[in-house]
Design a protein around this nucleic acid. Structure first.
Lengths: 163, 163
DNA sequence: TCTTGACCTTCCAGTTGGTGTAAGGTTTAT
DNA sequence: ATAAACCTTACACCAACTGGAAGGTCAAGA
């Protein structure tokens, strides 16, 4: 089974599979005479496992841990659970922060007349202290969540932009 | 006022201010005899404006638009409102997706015994089809939210990692 | 005056999770 | 034979910074 078939079967893109191999998230694929990668059923299981874990919100590094637990036949489920619980907590924290952000934005929208005039409550808020600061103060514990790539589902390939 | 004082006063880091200047989000700072950047009160207003906009969840590109509206004295508040409404929608979509993720994770935690045994419902779920797929199906419209750096508050400098 | 430390400067590299594109080889179908 | 549709590698790019190196400057204390 070549890479694009494995891609279709796993829900990853060929590029992504090669990328996962390059960063050694998955082992090197065996190669055919022509140098093409060749995947068997157990390779596919791993690809699917990673795809599901990513879709469930785990980072690549977390997938690495999950994979080692997956392979480890004498694992303890308590370790797996701890990993997932930790993730759960971080997701919940992020939800709360986004909700605060949403409230701030909704408030800005509500206050802004949305007319032809230059007077604008949104610009005013961003110019002088206000809601943005109040959000800022209670979101203090959640920093540098950048690059965690949380909201990623990575499913299918005709990837359309949302923005 | 030199860069680290401007940083303290705005809530950005000196590195970030230089970065914003480099990507031309803000104009080049005036320089003293020694080549040091020098900030006055109106520069500081801009820095604070950007800091608040970022903390409110706007991307740097969105900040660029907000800044041009901020500077534009004959702006129409309807344009500003449209920008913020669009952002609000994307934040709401992201919240929904994270909530699905949270539900999946909570379900995994609930099903996992968390004991010394190797048998683990979490690994099983990720190995065979299950919740991850069901999430995958309803989250279909929200892809590639990566790199939007939503959950960022960028406040203060002794930045501690959460993970 | 010298030195120490705390600033400042620029520049390059790394982060996350891939995607875009190029340049080239292979296979398949017509 | 030739074109389309694969495959390969490798490099560059995205967001929004941060870290660190290498060097210049400045203020204070011995």
């Amino acid at each position: 089974m070549n890479i694009s078939q494995a891609a279709k079967a796993s829900g990853l893109s060929p590029k992504t599979i090669r990328y996962y191999e390059r960063i050694e998230l998955i082992g090197p694929a065996s190669r055919g005479n022509n140098g093409y990668r060749d995947y068997n059923d157990s390779d596919l299981d791993v690809l699917r496992f990673v795809q599901r874990a990513r879709a469930t919100g785990f980072s690549v590094e977390e997938c690495r841990q999950l994979l080692s637990l997956y392979r480890e036949t004498n694992r303890h489920s308590v370790e797996v659970k701890a990993l997932v619980q930790d993730k759960l907590q971080r997701v919940e924290a992020q939800i709360i922060e986004l909700q605060h952000m949403r409230d701030t934005l909704a408030d800005l929208v509500r206050r802004c007349p949305g007319d032809e005039l230059a007077q604008c409550a949104i610009i005013d808020r961003l110019t002088h202290e206000g809601i943005a600061d109040s959000i800022d103060s209670h979101a203090g514990s959640i920093k540098n969540q950048a690059h965690t790539n949380q909201g990623q589902t990575t499913r299918g390939r005709p990837q359309t932009e949302l923005r």
